[in-house]
């Protein structure tokens, strides 16, 4: 990763993405929706996916996001849609937070959690698609889904007092 990034300062790519985010909005009749984040912490990300078959494989035909959050949250939302649009579900699930960070030319360390949030939203959207369609859920995906839900519960518990 480039070294020129310092905390609190965004790369040009982050700012451009924030200024002109791709694929924002809702998908009506989405095949899967991933909802992550918490209003109390300040970042909420919703990812919608539309799945179709190509050469016998399921691909993410369309993807859109709705995000409430900071510059980093909006940029990571946009970049993850770019990263996985048109990919097979199998390949999309290989996307990591580092892919997101690298695609943005870096993020301040304190904002790394936004890249995690984007990947989590994708995992949740795909999990939702499998679940809704009664498909068997790959073991690894089930595990990731469980972890995301667990983290969500912890955060909700932590901010319960403040949110009431």
């Amino acid at each position: 990763m480039e070294k020129k990034i310092c905390a609190g300062l965004y790369t040009q790519k982050v700012l451009e993405t924030f200024k002109n985010p791709h694929n924002y909005g809702k998908i009506k009749n989405a095949d899967g929706i991933g909802k992550v984040g918490n209003i109390v912490c300040g970042d909420v990300m919703w990812l919608y996916i539309k799945v179709s078959k190509k050469n016998g494989k399921e691909i993410i035909k369309d993807i859109k996001f709705e995000t409430f959050g900071c510059v980093a949250a909006i940029s990571t939302s946009s970049i993850i849609t770019d990263l996985v649009k048109g990919k097979t579900i199998e390949d999309a699930l290989k996307t990591t937070k580092d892919n997101v960070i690298e695609s943005l030319g870096g993020l301040p360390k304190i904002k790394y959690h936004c890249s995690v949030l984007a990947v989590d939203a994708l995992v949740e959207a795909i999990h939702d698609y499998f679940f809704k369609n009664g498909k068997s859920i790959p073991e690894n995906l089930a595990k990731r889904h469980k972890l995301i839900q667990k983290a969500k519960d912890i955060i909700e518990e932590k901010y319960k007092k403040w949110a009431k």
Binding site: A7, G8, Y10, L15, C41, F68, C70, V71, I74
Partner: peptide, 27 residues
């Protein structure tokens, strides 16, 4: 979200600040 507000304003040449969590070093 405050940080988004500040950065959007900055794109129009306007400098303001926010008490939003996301703009602070501690979140």
């Amino acid at each position: 979200e405050g940080e988004s507000l500040v950065m959007q304003l900055d794109m129009y040449g306007i400098a303001c600040s926010t008490g939003s969590a996301c703009s602070s070093m501690t979140l």
